[in-house]
């Protein structure tokens, strides 16, 4: 046992040393661009795109069997922050132009709009509180939740309420649109303003109440390949697929409009 001891010590020492060397090697590695169109890509998508992009991903890999796509979904504002901190995004699909514009150091080519979305009031199935319009959101017996002004849906909600002249005090400012949907679906909140597509995605667990066209906001979704992408060719092919008739048909099924 005592004979084996020094060797084990050196083994551990080697491991520790290897870790340190390995870590420094990672940080100094040169950025290499992979032009293979089948290179695995990571798509950063606004959380309202979760369902539609899941299906688009399946259709895309059916069309290009050697391709590999992974998705990372979250609030557009959160995704921009992650990409700017070095998260390996090959495609960024944002719920608003402002988040796209904050991307550093920009994109390969100008971002292209690929979908639109309208807003709806989300309520519980059967609409137990009898919410018929924006004015009901200000009622004292209605628990209304919104999103933080940093998040696109939070900003859109402010715009809609301002346009309708409604002053409603939200009980919570969620970190993303799914947070609003969850609070209503779980029954903790009575109403929130979300995208039409979110109401559709919630299925039988929620109901949508229309917001009149003149005060409604049409959100336009831009898509682009971040300049830092290491697989720009594969990423560009995915973007083209999203904008193709096949991609647009899937988006339409999830309630998105054409740009």
């Amino acid at each position: 046992m005592s004979a084996a001891r020094p060797r084990r010590v050196f083994g551990l020492l080697g491991l520790a040393l290897g870790l340190v060397v390995g870590m420094s090697a990672c940080s100094t590695k040169r950025v290499t661009i992979d032009t293979d169109p089948d290179a695995p890509i990571t798509v950063f998508a606004a959380s309202s795109l979760t369902g539609a992009f899941g299906v688009i991903g399946t259709a895309y890999t059916a069309a290009y069997p050697d391709a590999k796509v992974e998705f990372s979904v979250g609030a557009s504002s959160e995704l921009v922050a992650q990409i700017n901190q070095g998260a390996p995004a090959d495609v960024f699909a944002s719920a608003d132009g402002e988040s796209m514009g904050r991307l550093e150091p920009g994109t390969n080519g100008a971002p292209e709009n690929f979908a639109t979305n309208r807003l709806q009031i989300i309520v519980a199935p059967g609409n137990p509180k009898g919410i018929i319009g924006l004015a009901d959101l200000a009622r004292a017996d209605v628990v209304f939740v919104s999103a933080a002004p940093q998040v696109p849906i939070g900003r859109y909600t402010q715009q809609v309420l301002a346009a309708a002249g409604v002053i409603a005090a939200p009980k919570s400012l969620e970190a993303n649109v799914k947070g609003i949907v969850n609070k209503v679906v779980l029954g903790e909140a009575d109403a929130g303003i979300v995208y039409v597509t979110d109401v559709l995605a919630a299925g039988s667990k929620a109901l949508g109440v229309d917001i009149p066209g003149p005060v409604n906001v049409v959100a336009t979704y831009p898509i682009a390949v971040p300049a830092a992408s290491k697989h720009p060719d594969a990423a560009a092919r995915f973007v083209a697929f999203v904008r193709s008739p096949a991609g647009q048909a899937i988006l339409a099924r999830f309630g998105f409009g054409r740009p």
Binding site: A81, Q85, A148, Q150, S172, L173, E174, A175
Partner: peptide, 27 residues
């Protein structure tokens, strides 16, 4: 906290929540 209590400045917004949201707009 963010799941159960939500996020409302002055009421349920704690420092970790404020930090998380600030990270998106103003790192």
């Amino acid at each position: 906290t963010i799941t159960f209590a939500g996020n409302l400045p002055g009421r349920t917004q704690t420092m970790p929540l404020a930090t998380y949201l600030a990270l998106e707009s103003d790192p």
